[in-house]
Simulated scan of single mutants.
Amino acid sequence: MIKDWRTTIACAIVLLFGITLFLFGTNGFSAFTAETARVNKLVQDKPKFPNVTLEDSKGRDYAISEFKGKYVFITFLYTFCTTVCPQLEMNMSKVYSALQPKYLGIDIVFLSISFDPARDDPGTLEKYRSYFHSDGETWRMARIPNKAELDSLLKAFGVIVIPDGYGNFTHNSAFYLVDPKGTLVDVMDYKKTDKAAKKVAAILKREAGE
């Protein structure tokens, strides 16, 4: 009898310990994967877009302040990618096309940032953007030539990029929304384009007082 009682207590302690670890590891049951927990933390922390110099497909250099007063819808990619990146940019084009043209370039800009600046020079980005009907203005493709600056942005936005040693990268993918003050306010599933488009459209309408 005493042995059974002790066994029950021990099992209860193990179960409680496991639940506690799960709570800490998943932000209180709200996240069930490491990626979801990462996204939740980013949205909660709301990091600022670091002070970096972007170079776009037109060869123009500027900081994120170029878009001050506008929302910026962002993806991270590399043009030599043959797996997720083409789908990521195709899905970005769907969100772009779903928004009313009156908002584009005025209230929001789209920005695809390469994390492979050595190969993704302006000429390469200029060719790549044409595949997705990016106009190079309201939707720009750019790189960050300075490695330290690039690393600071990837770290701030929780973008994981792991080179495989053969010119390719393992990386996570998402839609990132930065507000007019340069603060990351949302991270969206790039596979759910309709949901992302509706969310962005609602934000723009609210900001416009519509």
Rank of each mutant, 00 (worst) to 15 (best):
40 N>P: 04
54 L>P: 02
45 D>R: 11
84 V>I: 15
59 G>N: 09
111 L>F: 02
70 K>M: 08
54 L>T: 03
75 T>L: 01
120 D>Y: 02
87 Q>S: 13
104 L>F: 01
101 P>D: 05
93 S>D: 13
53 T>Q: 07
64 I>D: 01
116 D>A: 10
79 T>F: 05
83 T>S: 14
44 Q>R: 15
50 P>Y: 03
60 R>A: 12
89 E>Q: 15
64 I>R: 06
79 T>I: 08
74 I>H: 04
55 E>S: 03
109 V>M: 00
54 L>G: 00
63 A>Q: 13
62 Y>I: 00
66 E>D: 12
103 Y>V: 05
117 P>N: 01
107 D>M: 06
52 V>P: 00
116 D>P: 08
119 R>F: 13
35 E>A: 12
118 A>I: 10
95 V>L: 04
90 M>D: 08
113 I>K: 08
70 K>A: 04
75 T>R: 01
93 S>M: 12
106 I>A: 14
100 Q>K: 15
62 Y>L: 00
73 F>P: 00
101 P>H: 06
52 V>H: 02
76 F>I: 07
64 I>W: 05
84 V>L: 10
66 E>H: 13
41 K>C: 03
53 T>L: 06
54 L>Q: 05
96 Y>W: 10
49 F>T: 02
77 L>K: 05
82 T>S: 10
104 L>P: 03
46 K>L: 04
109 V>W: 03
70 K>F: 03
117 P>H: 02
40 N>D: 14
32 F>Q: 13
40 N>C: 06
78 Y>C: 07
37 A>S: 14
62 Y>R: 04
37 A>C: 09
36 T>P: 00
121 D>Y: 05
95 V>F: 08
63 A>S: 15
32 F>A: 09
42 L>F: 04
53 T>I: 11
104 L>D: 00
59 G>T: 09
39 V>Q: 14
60 R>Y: 07
32 F>G: 13
111 L>A: 01
85 C>I: 06
52 V>Y: 00
48 K>N: 14
69 G>C: 12
107 D>I: 03
55 E>K: 11
81 C>P: 11
47 P>A: 12
67 F>T: 11
42 L>P: 04
40 N>M: 13
90 M>Q: 12
119 R>D: 11
108 I>C: 04
57 S>G: 09
115 F>T: 04
96 Y>A: 07
107 D>S: 12
77 L>M: 15
47 P>S: 10
74 I>A: 11
51 N>L: 10
121 D>G: 02
101 P>F: 02
88 L>C: 07
